[in-house]
Simulated assay, not measured.
Amino acid sequence: MPATNRSELAAFDADRVRQAVQETISGPLYAFCEYNTESFRPLYLSDDTVSTYDSRDAMLEHFEKIHTNVHMDFMQSKLFRNTLFPEAERVEYITTSMDFLKILRVYVGDDGLFISVDPAEPVVPIVDAIKATLEWPANQNS
C-alpha cells in the first residue's frame, strides 16, 4: 500500500492537486511532495518508491538530502525571473529526466511540488492539470 500524508505546507490544496495529477498521468506516480524553502513533506510515495530503501530512516535521510538541494530551486527561479529574463512573470516548472525517472518541480507562489514519474511521461499535461486545479499566481516576479 502506498505511503500517504495530508498536505500541511502549501498555501493551496496540494491533496486535490495530487489527485488531479494521478488522474492525468498514464504511468506510475512514484512520489508527490510539497515543499518550500524550509520544509519538505511527502504526500504520496508508491510501493515501488518505498521498496527501494532499506529502511524508513534511510528513505527519510535521502529525502532530506533532496530537500537540501531543491530549496535552491526558488533561488534559481528568482535568477531566471529577475536577472536573466525579467520580462517573465513566473518560472512555472523545472524538469529533470533520467534513465529511470523524471522529476518535475512545479512552483506555485512560495510553494513547490516535487513530482516523480516514469521518464516517458509527458510533462505539459501534468502542468496543465495543476493549473486547472489551482488559481495560478498572476505574477511571481519579486
Rank of each mutant, 00 (worst) to 15 (best):
A10C: 11
E89Y: 04
E135L: 15
F80P: 00
T68A: 06
L79N: 06
P2N: 07
Q140E: 07
N36S: 00
S55F: 04
E92N: 02
I130P: 14
S39W: 04
I126E: 11
L43V: 05
Y107I: 02
I103P: 05
F80R: 14
N141D: 09
Q76Y: 07
E135V: 09
L113F: 08
L29E: 08
M72G: 09
S142K: 14
D54V: 01
T52N: 13
T24W: 12
F80V: 12
M75E: 08
T68G: 08
Y107F: 06
A58S: 07
E64S: 04
M98P: 00
A31W: 08
S55L: 03
L104F: 04
F12K: 07
M72K: 13
M72A: 10
V117H: 12
E61K: 07
D110F: 01
L45G: 10
Y93K: 07
F12P: 02
N69G: 04
D13G: 05
Y93N: 10
L79C: 10
R18Y: 03
M72R: 12
V106N: 05
L104K: 12
S39R: 14
K131P: 03
S39A: 12
K102G: 02
S55H: 02
E87H: 08
L79K: 05
T37L: 12
E121V: 00
Q22A: 14
S97V: 14
N36A: 00
T4K: 13
S142D: 09
Q140Y: 01
T133Q: 07
P137S: 11
Y35R: 05
E135F: 08
N141A: 13
A11G: 07
S55W: 01
D73E: 09
F85Q: 09
E64P: 00
L43H: 09
G112V: 10
L45A: 13
E23D: 14
N36H: 01
E87Y: 06
D118S: 14
I103V: 15
D48V: 10
V21K: 12
V123T: 11
C33L: 07
T37K: 13
I115A: 05
L9A: 01
F74C: 02
P122F: 07
Q76H: 11
T96L: 15
E87Q: 14
A132D: 09
K131Q: 11
Q140D: 01
K65M: 03
A58M: 03
Y107N: 06
R105A: 09
H71I: 07
L134K: 09
S55E: 08
R41K: 15
T49R: 15
P28H: 13
A10T: 12
L113I: 05
A88V: 04
